[in-house]
Design a protein around this nucleic acid. Structure first.
Length: 677
RNA sequence: UGUGGGGUAGAGCAGUUGGUAGCUCGUCGGGCUCAUAACCCGGAGGUCGUGGGUUCGAGUCCUACCCCCGCUACCA
């Protein structure tokens, strides 16, 4: 680690189809920013890169839906995202975007270089094409009937009902999700990155040389490598993106995951003509801060691209975080289940550091974590206000009260003073160790330990009592307290930059270097300090309640939206209906099918017989609570083997848009076996 | 389906190479009164997901299973 001259920090490019939320901040930008600030404070050479990822299919779809152009979409969100980051003080050296000219040039150039070296494999395949939308369709954008289980909403890549992975061509009655039309097969040529050829090298590089990577990152890579890598298409038939810079590739663009990480390089180019020193000098240490969904792209695909190009360095570490949930539910842009940064800035002005603190203290470093407004309030009130803010306030109030704001001269240090001052040095070592290994949560806790130390020291020394009997001693005590306070400005600088600015202005201090941390002479006797304002203020219940209410109304709005009814299917003849034999029945036994999450094995009395039916309702019904329930059952459905159990029929359920299932049952008492028609 | 991470006190989380289970918040009791009813001390609260196994000794290693969350399937 010590043989590196400089550090290049990249942070995942947020996708410009929506604003950024607390999940982005907690997962990537806050830890990356803390690390960048920490290294800068140590006087190291650092470059911190960010930018918006503006290509890909979802953006074109969103543009279509809103009746505008992809460029208009990305302009809007890039602006919002950039603004939010600025206001939160994410200290990018450059924040660029992938629709920038320099990025198109850079990405094209890298593609061209690899292509000229023969680094791609070209392959022509048949793919579904939507003639109305004039567009090839990704598997995910095709829906149809599963050939295995007859589920009629299977996707082109997998059936969510039976879990089988599919090819889009397997689907019965495929339909385009864009237009609803039947897609046609059409030939298309694409360029593939032969990841398989890099497997031995990747195994050596990651599995042998980077055992220090976080367990989630290392494990994920190992699983990909153990499973064997396949060539991966890096071009797409689309009109939005970086055009493939090769003859015969008209109308094709680079796959968004090929061009996005190259955005780190183009952003560096945009910043400085000296960019190559960061990307090609082996003495540069490159770090990718990302979320867990990005692991494979940053640990396998992007390194292979860089390796194939030949002249670039590779990441030294990829500290990926897990995900942050919000009030128990997954954060979702499309469901509007998020705390949006631009809204937070309006609702909690001047409290950027508070959110950053909360997100760091509860960062999803080893597993998914949950953000709750209650926790946010507690952390602010019990930690920032009560421990850090309060200590600073106590010291400054006492200094003003006893010495008119002048730092007093220290007498001889007693063992208890020495002990407190020595702890500062120890804490510095501990915080450094945590930061160097990307344990930001731990680092923050240790920093807070310094404020605790101050509070305890004050409580033990009781200067407010000693002032009556031994005023000389009190000078030493407050001198020590002021040195602790001064040290706080350094140790918290990477975490709470705005707040530390404020604290330095109270102390009339210049910004110091990390190497000054632990010193006992940061303030000199005779220095003046200002009368303090509050460093943090309490957050009251009503402010929290407003946020909770906001989320509740989002939930309601989502439910209302889901209540929309799907349009009727095409007409059928009576004979079609008459083929169905539906009867009333009763559930007489029910048990969960092992190793599945949705399936229940039911035994039904149909009046005709007792038979076994496997039904996908386990997520909403417990086996014991449905025994004895009346049901309607389709009895002449061809038997079907599900998870090794033969299912003889189908229970009729009403299902709403949300996926909620309800039994369809006769309204009054009627014998089992009665026909429904 | 396969695969990665996780399951430790009421909540949120640490637990490095196996050696007396910790931290923050909350809670209960006490102290203090300089401080934003803040601070300091002490207590209660855990069969470390479950069952087997290795070991003198297992939260930690092996094994089987259960549950949660991702990825696989372009949301950090």
């Amino acid at each position: 680690m010590s043989n590196f001259k400089r550090t290049l920090i990249t942070s995942a490019l947020p996708y410009a189809n929506g604003p950024v939320h607390i999940g982005h901040l907690a997962g990537v930008y806050v830890p990356a920013d803390i690390y960048a600030r920490y290294l800068r404070l140590k006087g190291e050479e650092v470059l911190f890169i960010g930018g918006s990822d503006e290509h890909g299919v979802p953006i074109t779809l969103k543009a279509k839906k809103e009746g505008t152009t992809p460029q208009a979409i990305v302009d809007k969100y890039h602006g919002m995202i950039k603004d939010s980051f600025e206001k939160f003080g994410i200290s990018f050296d450059v924040y660029s975007r992938t629709s920038a000219k320099i990025h198109h040039e850079t990405a094209a150039e890298i593609f061209k270089t690899i292509s000229d070296k023969g680094g791609f494999v070209e392959q022509t395949t048949e793919q579904f094409f939507d003639s109305e939308a004039n567009q090839f369709l990704a598997d995910r954008y095709i829906t149809g009937t599963c050939p295995k289980c007859n589920f009629d909403k299977a996707y082109g890549d997998q059936c969510e009902s039976c879990g089988t992975s599919l090819n889009a061509t397997d689907l019965i009655n495929p339909k385009s999700m864009l237009s609803g039309n039947v897609p046609v097969m059409k030939e298309t040529k694409h360029w593939y990155l032969p990841l398989d050829q890099y497997e031995p090298w990747l195994k050596e590089w990651i599995l042998e040389e980077h055992k220090e990577w976080k367990p989630n990152v290392y494990g994920q890579c190992k699983s990909w490598l153990d499973g064997g890598l396949n060539p991966r298409a890096v071009t797409r038939d689309l009109d939005w993106g970086v055009p493939v810079p090769i003859e015969g590739a008209e109308g094709k663009v680079l796959y968004v995951w090929f061009d996005a990480p190259i955005g780190y390089i183009s952003a560096t180019k945009e910043l400085t003509p000296d960019w190559e020193k960061y990307w090609k000098d082996p003495e540069t240490r490159m770090l990718h801060f990302i979320g867990k969904d990005n692991i494979v792209f940053h640990c396998i695909i992007f390194p292979v691209i860089l390796k194939a190009e030949g002249s670039y360095i590779l990441p030294d570490n990829v500290p990926a975080n897990e995900f942050l949930n919000l009030e128990g539910d997954k954060i979702s842009t499309s469901r509007n289940w998020a705390v949006w940064l631009h809204e937070y800035l309006v609702d909690f002005p001047g409290k950027e550091d508070v959110l950053k603190y909360t997100l760091t203290a509860n960062a999803p470093e080893t597993k998914d974590n949950d953000f709750t407004w209650k926790d946010f309030q507690t952390r602010n009130n019990s930690e920032l206000v009560a421990i850090l803010g309060n200590f600073v306030n106590r010291v400054l109030v006492l200094t003003n009260k006893y010495y008119e704001g002048i730092v007093p001269v220290a007498g001889n240090f007693e063992p208890r003073d020495e002990e407190a001052l020595a702890t500062l040095v120890q804490l510095r070592t501990d915080v450094e160790k945590a930061l160097d290994t990307f344990h930001f949560r731990e680092a923050l806790r240790l920093a807070m330990e310094m404020a605790r130390l101050g509070n305890k020291y004050l409580a033990d020394m009781e200067p407010w009592i000693l002032i009556k009997t031994d005023p000389e001693r009190v000078k030493t005590i407050l001198h020590v307290c002021l040195q602790i306070t001064a040290n706080l400005t350094i140790v918290f600088e990477p975490f709470l930059p705005y707040t530390m600015n404020k604290l330095r202005s109270f102390l009339q201090m210049e910004k110091l270097n990390w190497n000054d941390l632990g010193r006992r002479d940061l303030l000199k006797a005779g220095d003046r300090v200002n009368t303090p304002e509050l460093l943090f203020e309490k957050i009251e219940d009503d402010a929290i309640q407003r946020q909770v209410d906001k989320l509740l109304s989002t939930k309601k709005a989502n439910e209302a939206e889901l209540a929309t009814v799907v349009p009727a299917k095409a007409n059928i003849e009576y004979d079609d209906f008459a083929k169905l034999d539906i009867r009333t029945g009763t559930i007489i036994a029910a048990e969960k099918v092992a190793k599945t999450k949705k399936l229940l094995k039911l035994t039904i009395d149909t009046g005709i017989d007792q038979r076994t039916v496997v039904s996908g309702i386990a997520e909403q019904y417990e086996p014991e609570q449905i025994i004895g329930r009346r049901v309607s059952i389709l009895v002449n459905l061809a038997p079907k083997n599900l998870k090794g159990i033969e299912s003889q029929g189908m229970i009729l359920m009403a299902e709403n848009q949300e996926g909620k299932l309800v039994f369809v049952i006769p309204a009054d008492e009627i014998a089992n076996g009665s026909e429904i028609r």
